[in-house]
Design a protein around this nucleic acid. Structure first.
Lengths: 210, 210
DNA sequence: AGATAGTGGATAGTGCTACTCACTACTATC
DNA sequence: GATAGTAGTGAGTAGCACTATCCACTATCT
């Protein structure tokens, strides 16, 4: 186990904690107080750390995801949707005129782009919540720019799907890609967006249009 | 104060807490135990809630941001950069071959796109961390798709800058736009990305290419 | 004028999360 | 056989975002 801790850079007590919480399987016991860990464990631990550090997922959510990966009864079709649903934290908007207006705007956008979406989708609800909040705080400009954000999101999603590819036979891999892609991908996109902002704004402000 | 709580939907004790933490100014006192609150307070509280709920920012970070808004000594040019830096939580990659490789790939991308970036930028460091982690977990495909993500990020950033516009004379407004745009915008883009994923994947998998 | 409800200000307490420590009973190795 | 390490488990901790309670006081209704 010392070796496991060494190669992953995770402290031994933390590894024990993850095992207790069911994020990592316990390893093949070779004695009453000894067990063997393989490359699988190293991979799994690295994955967990990636999701915690860059995916911002909670231990409980990661446990659910790992259970989905390890559960062979789940159908392939549902598997990916379930994984995606699990990584999406949902934030409800409280009812009110802002919310209705937000929902109208969003549906409008979805129709225009031909995105078919179930209204129960956590991402849908989160989007409604964000839009309603923006409306209440007076950021109508931002709502008006939503098409541009949707363009950006679509580009990212296309890349995501290319990653996944048409072959989802390796279940563990497929779930991993969905999970890592969406959660860690969010962080990557956010970071790149900031870099782009800085670069564009420097161009705009340091050399003001003559 | 009851009225303030009513119109914002925030419980009275929470408003008190925010005042204690310096997120909201205390209101003009009209007596020993009475104070007046105006439209400013409503706006500010709504902003705080937006940042907490959809921006995922901590109370401490929001306090820093509000201090920046209220501090008239800060130069306009630095203000926006400082605001952006504050909303970006930084996650360092630990040194190692993955990190060096990640940094090489990122610099390559930045050069190719003509993004000028300081290597001390929190977003830069976060991007390096994400890439290094992806490398360690074996997601080289995702690293290869980074250009697509950068495209998406650029599209979003252009929209952001359009929002801000060339006029940054209203400081409070400008900082607000940067803060709300980047932090709440991240959530919006993430939600739209998931909706796009779902829509594209449904098209791909339910009607497989004949 | 008196009852009632509400206010600003302060301290203390809550529930949750992600660890972290400590302990026991063992065992591999020098 | 002394030392160091290990699996497994219960308890403890730090930080965060509130939330509850109390106090002296006051606006308002009757």
């Amino acid at each position: 186990m010392a070796e496991l801790s060494e190669t992953t850079g995770i402290p031994v007590p933390t590894i024990k904690y993850y095992m207790r919480e069911g994020l990592v399987s316990p390893g093949r016991p070779t004695g009453r107080n000894q067990a063997d860990y393989g490359e699988q464990h190293v991979r799994r631990l690295r994955l967990v750390r990636a999701l915690v550090e860059y995916g911002g997922l909670s231990i409980a959510v990661i446990r659910d995801l790992m259970a989905q990966i390890d559960n062979p009864d789940l159908e392939d079709f549902n598997l990916l949707g379930a994984a995606q649903k699990t990584v999406t934290q949902q934030r409800e908007a409280r009812p009110g005129p802002s919310r209705d207006e937000a929902e109208r705007r969003l549906r409008d956008l979805l129709d225009r782009r031909g995105w078919r979406t179930r209204t129960g989708d956590p991402a849908y609800r989160t989007a409604v919540g964000v839009l309603a909040t923006l409306d209440e705080v007076g950021y109508h400009d931002m709502i008006d720019e939503m098409d541009a954000y949707a363009d950006a999101a679509e580009k990212a999603a296309e890349a995501d799907l290319r990653l996944l590819g048409p072959d989802v036979s390796d279940r563990e891999r497929a779930v991993e890609i969905v999970v890592v892609g969406t959660s860690v991908g969010d962080t990557l996109i956010a970071a790149l967006r900031r870099l782009a902002q800085a670069s564009i704004s420097e161009r705009m402000y340091t050399r003001p249009p003559a």
